[in-house]
Design a protein around this nucleic acid. Structure first.
Lengths: 228, 228
DNA sequence: CATAGTATACCTGTATACAACTTGATTTTT
DNA sequence: AAAAATCAAGTTGTATACAGGTATACTATG
């Protein structure tokens, strides 16, 4: 699998390189502990050091690599990282939904339901890229709607990691057929119900369970692929 | 005021430039809406575009500027930003303290108390740089101790903004003498008590009040300076 | 044999060069 | 006079060049 070419239109070479590297790191094609050098990556991508440098800084900001004096060591996504990522998403989303529940969110509910429908469609057609994208979109649209620049920034900092991990996990989930898609859909419907309820405790509970579940699934697919 | 030269030793030119620009933006020396170009900044700092480019990307990641096709527009720190920053800090710190309270934190308590003492010392000597730094350190040491890489990443994304805003606010607070320092010290002692209590509700309450207060103070000093 | 010193190759940070594109004004045309 | 075309200045994205530092391997010397 290569990074979906959609969404790479018109973006700079540096971003393309960061997307490709990110995918390879999360997929495990690039092993943990590997030391990358700017020249080496530049050669691999037939590019100059400038965009590579930009890409490495991006990945460093995302915590996938650590820039050192000489070379960038690959940190990758450990089980601890997945856990922590879920912690953060849970924190953000609890905050966001609580905030949304105090706002007018009639249109949002509609959008969310429509997105879930699209997820079902994508699942039927085994289109894991589309399914991943709609999954991402579901959460992202809530965050945008919450109209909180800082929270949005936090999200943007993990957005690409989340999407890429989602891509990898969803592909394996669909290919291996070991995980049902139906529970995934149901989980998202629960989130909508939480938003509608406006019940702070219920929201907290639902979001926490959502990410409890995500944690397990991702751990089982991203980190323990059967076909590696 | 220039950015404190301590902590700029050995760092790259790009980082120095980002620190200086950040300070100027937060202080208001660079007005909101200003459009910065790489060439212009490079000329001002007698540097080439490479480090400037790096600095602009950093500031963009922090949300202080927005990179556009042509030029980078300065967003600055609006009252809404301050509010939101406090929201995020509150979210992070509540999580961190709750996590810490379930760990062995004997040594940490000692460090925190020592830091508060240093804050008192710095306040007596009207050393606002030191006071700001110890304030930052107080919160930072807790976050580090919580041993949560992702949360630490979130913190690192706002760390420089927080420190710079703290610098500006603390300077004005000390110079104008309109705000007492004693309440600030007391607020931090309360946080320690919250950590010791291990009482989830109490922790939430104390942290929330802490940032409620921070919000007010920073708004009154950073955004409404009397000597501007 | 061990160790100090050196040489070499490589890496990063910064500067400079170049090409494609955007923007705004000026000129030409209708 | 208004609109279209063109031209000029400036901007970003990328490539390349150079300087200073670091690690590794090899050599010489005790």
């Amino acid at each position: 699998m290569q990074y979906p070419s959609i969404g790479l239109q018109g973006v700079s070479l540096g971003e393309k390189i960061s997307c490709e590297l990110r995918l390879q790191i999360i997929k495990g094609s690039i092993k943990l502990g590997t030391v990358l050098s700017e020249n080496q990556i530049a050669a691999e991508f037939n590019a100059s050091r400038s965009p590579v440098r930009e890409a490495l800084k991006t990945l460093s900001n995302e915590g996938l690599i650590r820039l050192e004096r000489m070379g960038a060591v690959v940190l990758g996504l450990t089980p601890k990282d997945i856990e922590e990522l879920c912690d953060v998403r849970c924190l953000i989303e609890t905050f966001v939904i609580q905030r949304l529940s105090a706002m007018d969110h009639e249109g949002l509910i509609h959008t969310l339901n429509k997105t879930i429908d699209k997820m079902e469609m994508a699942a039927k057609h085994r289109d894991f890229v589309e399914l991943s994208y709609q999954d991402l979109y579901f959460h992202e649209v809530m965050i945008h709607e919450a109209d909180h620049t800082r929270i949005l920034h936090l999200w943007n900092n993990i957005r690409y990691i989340v999407f890429t991990a989602l891509l990898v996990a969803t592909e394996r989930r669909i290919v291996e057929e070991t995980h049902e898609i139906e529970p995934l859909i149901e989980k998202h419907r629960l989130l909508v119900s939480a938003l509608i309820s406006k019940d702070s405790n219920y929201i907290q509970k639902v979001v926490q369970e959502h990410y409890e579940d995500t944690r397990k699934t991702v751990n089982n697919t991203v980190l323990n692929p059967k076909n590696l």
